[in-house]
Design a protein around this nucleic acid. Structure first.
Lengths: 210, 210
DNA sequence: CGCTATTTTAAACGCATGTTTAAACTGAAC
DNA sequence: GTTCAGTTTAAACATGCGTTTAAAATAGCG
């Protein structure tokens, strides 16, 4: 295993648990069993390392997401549940890509949105605009009555649901286990959240009551 | 204005925007126009200062939340929208308590859940258990078919929606403004999110489709 | 082998952090 | 006016950070 990959693997695990700001290069290089200076030699800076960790996942994930979202769009009248369910398979296949890949990636996504004042949001929206565009298209086809403004807010609510749940998923899975003897996997967590967000995005517009 | 309050005010504003880890004591004391050592003199440590900032809000908010949640529970058959709408007034009244009180508090809540590895979650659940209990009771009365496990997950999804939205609300409000010329206040953001989370929690159980 | 380019290494640099110290100041009580 | 607890202050402390340096080790190639 190359030094570069050893660093990427260690950085990914630590970033997921402790956040970007909360993880030092010394922790990373120590866990990776490489020299401290190796990060700056191979990646240039900590910021570039963060980008590299995220890119490794996004380059794997983006084509798959674009594919399934386009497929959903091809249907006459997709349901919102279909739209959100489309994410499940590409996300879960990250577990073949790397151990705990799904969970790690979603946690990283969560960290990136709250750590480091949104530079990751800029990174994702500029580097992978198609994923977002196809997703918006799919939601629009499933629920055309939703105005652009309402769509904007509901998609960010959804982002929040996912990102927060996943970034605190370790703690939550522990609580669930001790309270309900319920040994939840990340896969079943994804299944749990789909009806929630589908119903949320599907909520009637304009002050109607549930 | 006492030194203690000057520190609390400055810390609150900075914590909300830059997070707990992202704000240094020097920034706080500089903005508060007090000496650096004043924080450790009056509060003991940075961690205790964080607790003090949160306590100031929770001590104001908790009695009001408990009151409105108990009121909702007294109804024969409250709706989920009523349950979640009950939060609006106590939260918005924080604006009378302090300038930008509502927004600041919700942002702090969001920061606390992702920064500092969940010590704030422990703090809130142990210090203010009644609020959580009354809330769970209210949701249960509104939707008794929801099992304890499903309730657990959906309430955390809801927490995620709120907390994430609010912790990135500054960025989101800016984007909304530039994209839609839509000058959104925190109050209307709360109104937007209520139907979303009410519908999410109200989603049918057991794999039914929307 | 001998040369070169790449990689690894230990050490240091400069800087920012939370905290502590001890002296200076303040304001009421006697 | 003196005393003394409470408060403020400037300075230093110890530590950890990301980054840089320059020498040592390694690997690839003619």
């Amino acid at each position: 295993m190359s030094t570069k990959n050893k660093i990427l693997d260690a950085a990914e695990d630590l970033f997921a648990v402790k956040g970007f700001n909360g993880t030092s290069l010394r922790e990373i290089t120590s866990q990776a069993e490489v020299n401290l200076a190796a990060v700056n030699y191979h990646f240039g800076s900590k910021k570039e390392l963060i980008k590299a960790v995220m890119s490794r996942y996004m380059n794997e994930l983006a084509p798959n997401l674009e594919k399934v979202l386009l497929e959903v769009c091809e249907q006459d009248k997709p349901t919102l549940t279909q739209v959100f369910s489309a994410f499940a398979e590409p996300l879960l296949s990250l577990n073949d890509f790397r151990e705990n890949g799904t969970s790690n990636f979603l946690q990283l996504l969560g960290r990136g949105y709250t750590d480091s004042q949104g530079f990751l949001r800029w990174f994702l929206t500029t580097q992978y605009p198609n994923v977002i565009q196809y997703f918006v298209d799919a939601v629009h086809k499933a629920y055309p009555e939703l105005s652009a403004e309402e769509m904007f807010w509901r998609l960010h609510f959804t982002m929040g649901t996912i990102v927060f749940t996943m970034s605190s998923s370790e703690a939550l899975l522990d609580i669930a286990k001790s309270d309900f003897n319920q040994d939840v996997e990340i896969a079943s967590l994804i299944e749990q959240v789909i009806p929630y967000i589908a119903a949320g995005v599907a909520a009637p517009v304009g002050g109607a009551r549930t």
